[in-house]
Amino acid sequence: MADARPALLVVRLHAEPFDPLALLAGTGPGGGSGAHPGGWCGGLGLDSPAAEAHFIGRVRGTAAGGGVLEALELEHYPGMTERQLQVLAQACAARHGVAAVLVAHRVGRALPGEALVLVAVAADRRGPAQRCGGELLEALKHEAPFWKREWSGGVGTWVEGNTPLG
């Protein structure tokens, strides 16, 4: 059953590498001690939601053309990007009746293996948590202003579009 209360939303952009597992544990972007009881949900004042869905996307090691990827540059539109992420998370959370959504996204120059995106959803049931997480991830790939540039062999190439869902 859908939760009637508005969902709690957290949207963060990280200009430096962030540890998604530390964010989930409630210790902040850089990790360290002092995990919040109940992790990120506890930090929002939510008591142990019955279901959580998490997705972590990382920078792959190969460029679209097959070469070795040296770095991935992520440009965004300061102000609009944060606002769009909020709008998309709010709408998705309301559609699925979930309790909380956390979106963290990297900007700037990222290296292979580093986290690009974290989407976490807390809900009363696994179905809404998983559906909301998947839908929000696809929405932000197409509706939040981010642009990727792959650096390979010293050459930067703007990525036009997204990788397939697979």
């Binding site: 539109y77 995106v117 991830l137 932000l140 790939k141 197409h142 939040a144 202003p145 981010f146 642009w147």
Partner: peptide
């Protein structure tokens, strides 16, 4: 006003 090329986030 902003012109936005194809978006590629996530």
């Amino acid at each position: 006003l902003a012109f936005l090329p194809p978006i590629s986030g996530g």
